[in-house]
Each structure stands twice: as C-alpha cells, then as structure tokens.
Design a protein around this nucleic acid. Structure first.
Lengths: 173, 173
DNA sequence: GTCTATAACGTGATAGAC
DNA sequence: GTCTATCACGTTATAGAC
C-alpha cells in the first residue's frame, strides 16, 4: 500500500495477503472507508511520534533540523501520509484530517526548532520560522515525487542535502 | 483528470464529458494505455515549452530563476506531470518516460540559468547548479502535495517564495 | 468514423454456514 | 469471529449496425 497507493489496494488484496477470508474485514470495520480511517489515524500518530524522536532534544537547534533532513529515505517508496495527497479520496475529510494532522505537527516541530536556532544566532532572524519549516516539508515531499519519476531512490536525499547546504550557507543575521 | 488523477478517469468519463459514444475512443487508440501514452507526450511537450518561455532570455540570471518560481500555481490542482508520480501506473515505462523527459528538461534549463548566475557572481560558485535546480523542482512538487493536504491553494506559493528568500539571502561567494 | 449494446472482469459489500 | 459463496456495480474493451 505504501508503494502502490491506498486506492490501488482492494480489500481482497489485503485479505489475500493476510490469509484471512472475505468476510473478516467486514466484521471489524463497516467497510473499506472505516478501515482506512482507522489505518490513517494509526500511521499519522506513528509518524508524528517518529518526527518528535528524530528531532529530539540534544544537539544545537540547527543540528536537530539537519537530523530531520538526514533521515535516510527510499524515494521509490513514498511518504506514507504525503503520497495520499494526489489521490482523489483526499476530498473525503475523514481521510484527509489525519494526514493534515501529521503535516501540521511536523511543521510545528520544525518551526519551533528554527525559532530556537534563531534565538541562538544560528539562522538569520528575518526569515520566518514557519515558512522555513513549510519549505523543508515540501523538499521532502517533492523529493519523493522526483525520485519516483527519475527511478532514482536517492534523488530525494540529494534534495535534502542541498537544503542543508543552503541553510548552512545562510548568513546568521 | 488534472484534479482527480489519471487513474481515476475512465474512458467512460471521457466519452460522457465529450459527448462521444463508447466505441469512438477505440477507433483512434488501441485502448486506455495508448490513449494515455499519446496524452502524456502532448502534455510533456507543452510543459517543456512553457518552462522555456517562462525562464526566457531577458533579465539577470537570478531573475530568470525567480520567474520560474513566481509562476502563480493553484496548489489544489496539481502538476499535470508530477501528480502522476504517486500513481502505481508510473511503473509502466511508456507512461513514465514523458514525465521524466519533462523533469529532466526542466532541471537542465534551471541548472543552466544557475550556472549563468554563478558566472555573473549572483550565486556562490561552490553550490552545485544541478542540485540547486533539483531542489527547486522538489519545492514546487512538494508544494502541490502540502497545498492539497492543507486545502490551501497558496501554500505552494509561500514555499516557492521562501525558496526565493533563501536564494536572495545567500552570500555571492 | 461514430453509434448502441454488451461482454469479461475486478471491486466493495453481504449472506449465511460453521 | 472466521469462513465460502455470491451479489450489484463500474471498468476496460469489443461487436456490429448505421
């Protein structure tokens, strides 16, 4: 599902792979939609937690931002939340909300660390911390897109590396 | 199709909307696949041409890069090529190739302008022009992703604006 | 070259035995 | 709580009249 997209995975695929029979899914969930609502909630929580752990508390603020960028990503797979954005079912609010929750939380975390970096004189204060955080998120999400198009699992890692270079090259005020 | 994704559009949708009957599509194309191969080729060419026109020849090199970033984008729609990356049919080479062709050409154009900017002393020479171009493309593509997740058609434009700020803040050597 | 009708298949969902 | 069998529907594709 991570690789093919949520819409491309049918309940039958899931049941075949798990070895369960047709009816089992419908005992635990009302249908495909409620199953995906549950799944998105789980994945969203998990990824928020992972983001918090990655950024962590130790090291300089800028190093903590770099730690997020340095996560090794397989560009041929995709972000388990972001890859969902292109699918038409993003229109369904109950499916979009957990995705949005993850991105908002990620942006909040990164913006906080940027503000620390600014307070510590690592990054110029005239740049907006919220907007910087948003841009980093777009580099990662766009990195997945370009990796898949180029069939190059490392294109995304080169993009985050360039973002690091830019941040490092920035004057501190 | 631009808004819902290629996979979500059936031949019937197309024929209903265009007012043509069921069989007409299959007179002109072998099937849905060959139709999309043709379509992707057309869109790819069109977007390459648009990129060349946008960057253009007049103005300073850095201004020409900014002109690409300044294109007003509706984040709720999506890139007519990039949005396809998340779909599972990207695995089909005949569909992926035109998409890749557009991205490679775009990266080539932007990298060329970055090299000019470096020659003119607008951008530090130690940054890799190819990698900078790649990163800008990821900002745009990721901008579409975040815009759709946030339901905010301007999130993408804020991201490209931040990328401009970063490039402007950079020391020239 | 376009139309209507329809085939063949896969999907999401349900029924009812165990 | 899980299983097999099956339904109703939408999809891609084809047949054959006009």
């Amino acid at each position: 599902m991570w690789e093919r997209g949520y819409e491309a995975v049918s309940p039958r695929d899931l049941l075949d792979e798990s070895g369960a029979g047709q009816g089992s899914l419908y005992h635990h969930f009302k249908g495909k939609l409620t199953w995906r609502q549950w799944l998105f909630g789980e994945v969203s929580d998990e990824m928020c937690e992972f983001a918090r752990e990655t950024v962590g508390m130790d090291g300089s603020a800028l190093d903590r931002v770099f730690r997020y960028l340095d996560v090794s990503r397989d560009g041929l797979k995709g972000c388990r939340m972001g890859r969902f954005a292109a699918e038409s079912s993003i229109a369904e609010a109950s499916l979009r909300k957990p995705v949005e929750r993850y991105f908002r939380e990620l942006q909040r975390i990164l913006a906080g660390v940027f503000r620390e970096a600014q307070a510590d004189g690592e990054i110029a204060k005239r740049l907006d911390a919220n907007e910087l955080a948003l841009m980093l998120i777009t580099v990662v999400q766009g990195g997945f897109v370009v990796s898949r198009v180029y069939r190059d699992r490392n294109a995304i890692n080169r993009a985050t590396e360039t973002a690091k270079s830019l941040l490092k090259s920035l004057p501190t005020r």
